[in-house]
Design a protein around this nucleic acid. Structure first.
Lengths: 214, 214
DNA sequence: TGTACATCAGTGAACGCGCGTTCACTGATGTAC
DNA sequence: TGTACATCAGTGAACGCGCGTTCACTGATGTAC
């Protein structure tokens, strides 16, 4: 096994993962093609064999982010069949966890850094699939009286707004320490969700003690 | 009146406004000290007479953003005394309008581009003043049954999350065209708010026809 | 099985650019006497 | 009122840096016969 084969084998995916690693280390501002190449152990021109330009790499990283979210969402949906309130809460929590665990990747995934979805069909496809998961979730919640009736498209926007806003405010350090020090992240999320939810949320059931103060 | 007096007179504020202009034209990525100086009609080293470094200028721009939000918030509060639901909706709308009218300025204002509030007392002060306005609003809403009872601090986080998330998703182009083309911005905002609100919102009262399709 | 050749992935030097920051300077202003 | 001088705001050249992208190249792989 030689240490440095001339041909990498799977450089395309290696570059995507290198990009994610850079995002984790240096944040969204620190993402450059040259760093990505260095991280992947390859010369700085090598990425151009796999990506037309920086934008295209970013689109691939965003697509990967949507894929990870998709995996989390479907896992939650399938784990709690017939329990829309639980699905709602755990889906929101999965989104929050992704944001807190990989802030840079999260921001790229939901930023306009990639403007033209039209040019990246894989990305547009994943975005739509995730929208449809939320759509189904919202419909089930409405059917059980967990959410108000009404156009589910609007309800998705409302639900997504509150969770996305919550994560964004946390990541940007906007939530006053006065509040964030007194409650755990999951507690705060559940407090946000209780405001939109039409059935009361029992804190003992949904915010186990293990999460208090987290 | 000579065209180019050697001394500007009010360069500090001129630089802040130049920065806001750059943000409007080139967005948050395009903000550089050199462009700001050029925009203000001054050599690129001149800003250092007024700001220690780029961070400090950004902090001043963010402070100005919070000040503008503060002006909008207090105006709304004083225009609708004794009507917390109206105050809630118009405060949310004022926030949304600021975001849509000045996306770059909005993003800088609510980003972690300036990390250490501790070092910018004016900024921290404005942030706290705006938090307190929201705090008062939420308490009035709770007292009238517009919002659920509970720790007002948590309710502020929930309310702010939904509005901030809504604006962020709009600015990042994440709201599917399928939805955004069918509803006006104000309609969507009010749909989001109806989900948190405990008193129903009459669309005819709060989303006048003039705003439909906007 | 062996050879010629096309194809492909990765290299390293080079390009031009805009950036934040510094530094010695200069022009204007204000104050002390 | 006039002069000397300290203070201050703005200038322009220069620094070193990292960036995206290009280009001629080279090493490895795969295929045709």
């Amino acid at each position: 096994m030689q240490q440095k084969p001339y041909h990498h084998g799977d450089l395309k995916n290696a570059l995507i993962n290198a990009g994610i690693a850079i995002l984790a280390r240096d944040g969204i501002e620190g993402l450059s093609l040259r760093k990505v190449a260095l991280e992947a152990g390859v010369s700085h021109a090598a990425p151009y064999a796999h990506f037309a330009d920086k934008q295209t790499l970013i689109a691939a990283i965003a697509t990967d982010g949507h894929r990870k979210i998709n995996a989390r969402f479907t896992e939650v949906r399938d784990r709690h069949p017939g329990d829309p309130l639980r699905q709602l809460i755990e889906t929101a929590w999965a989104y929050t966890e992704f944001g807190l665990e990989e802030p840079g990747h999260f921001k790229v995934t939901y930023s306009s850094a990639v403007t033209k979805e039209r040019d990246y069909p894989d990305l547009a496809d994943m975005i739509e699939r995730n929208f449809e998961i939320l759509h189904g979730l919202v419909e089930r919640c409405q059917a059980k009286g967990v959410l108000l009736p009404g156009d589910p498209d609007l309800a998705v926007v409302g639900l997504w707004s509150i969770v996305h806003g919550f994560v964004s405010l946390l990541l940007e350090g906007q939530v006053s320490h006065n509040v964030a020090n007194r409650y755990g992240t999951r507690e705060m999320l559940i407090a946000c969700l209780s405001q939109v939810t039409r059935s009361p949320i029992d804190p003992l059931e949904f915010a186990p003690l293990a999460d208090r103060g987290r």
